[in-house]
């Protein structure tokens, strides 16, 4: 298990190094000069040069890469070209919205999907299964912003249980902050739950056909006991894969939902920074998201090994 963990850790570091290089090259190669964007098209050449020197844009590319990566390792993400505030601070603020939102949505999606998937698998081909499958079909097909608008219409405008948008802030107390994230989290969670429930059902159905499930029944376990004790853990591998992918998506992919609910999250930050050619922010947020994705994959890899002893043995 230790070898396995070290191996995965090594691959995590290599992925991070490659990702940082790719992000830097792609964003540097993309046309558009932040200095001229900031000063407008009528700016004088010497003013531009001065600004470039101030931003460090006149240095050779490799040097900028090294200082960018070096800074990031120490937690220094540089200064935003646009706002002249430390990028780390901007990201920090936004992360306190996006990360809880992603976790909240993931928890909701898991809480909906697992029971729904198990229920459908246990009642394969019966009305209960068909009902769940029909609902998930809708969940997959309907975009999350439509859910968002419906939730606002029902719970904010008609029932007035929640506010229609904005973020209360964690300084207003845990529950107040959580409350303002509830509708966005539900909107994000529903389509994800639909996908996850379908994966859970099909993974379980595959496992139910396995010989060891028959062995479990021959031992005297009831259908439900066999499903819980022998089926679930064997069905977890595909489910964990999807769960990992969903978390990565939720962290950055909430951009539309953040717009709909007017939340100051990472998605909005990256959107605004791209519009303003605030390259350093774009680079840093992208890098952060990549880091999160790789970290989640690492966690999923460890979870695989925890679930399946054969993976532990292989490496």
């Amino acid at each position: 298990m230790l070898r396995y963990t070290l191996k995965r850790l090594l691959s995590l570091l290599v992925s991070l190094a490659i990702a940082s290089l790719v992000i830097f090259v792609v964003i540097e190669v993309a046309p558009g000069d932040p200095a001229s964007f900031m000063l407008g098209i009528n700016a004088q050449e010497d003013t531009l040069a001065a600004l470039r020197a101030e931003l460090g844009l006149d240095q050779p590319k490799w040097q900028r890469y090294v200082s960018w990566v070096g800074g990031m390792v120490q937690g220094d993400f540089g200064m935003s070209y646009q706002y002249r505030t430390p990028v780390a601070e901007m990201i920090g603020d936004r992360l306190w919205v996006s990360l809880p939102l992603a976790l909240y949505a993931l928890t909701l999606s898991t809480l909906i999907a697992f029971p729904a998937g198990i229920y459908a698998a246990a009642r394969r081909g019966k009305p209960g299964d068909m009902g769940v499958m029909g609902a998930t079909q809708l969940g997959v097909a309907i975009p999350n912003f439509w859910f968002a608008m419906m939730l606002v219409l029902i719970f904010a405008i008609n029932l007035r249980w929640f506010s229609a948008g904005g973020f209360a802030g964690w300084d207003k107390g845990f529950f107040a902050a959580l409350k303002s994230l509830t509708l966005p989290a539900i909107a994000l969670a529903l389509p994800q739950a639909a996908i996850l429930a379908r994966v859970m059902r099909s993974a379980l159905l595959d496992v139910l056909g396995e010989d060891f499930m028959r062995t479990a029944r021959a031992k005297g376990l009831t259908r439900g006991q066999a499903l819980r004790r022998h089926g679930l853990r064997n069905a977890m591998i595909p489910v964990l894969t999807i769960l990992g992918l969903q978390f990565s998506f939720l962290l950055a992919g909430g951009i539309i939902i953040e717009q709909v609910f007017y939340l100051p999250g990472l998605g909005r930050l990256i959107f605004q920074s791209i519009s303003a050619r605030d390259l350093i922010v774009v680079e840093s947020v992208t890098m952060l998201l990549v880091f999160a994705v790789i970290l989640v994959n690492f966690a999923v890899d460890l979870a695989y090994a925890a679930v399946d002893p054969r993976l532990r043995a292989r490496t």
């Binding site: 060891f212 028959r214 002893p309």
Partner: peptide
């Protein structure tokens, strides 16, 4: 009961 296929008759995890 004992089954035919010992490779798959046991829970792998």
């Amino acid at each position: 009961m004992v089954f035919q296929e010992p490779m798959t008759a046991l829970n792998p995890v």
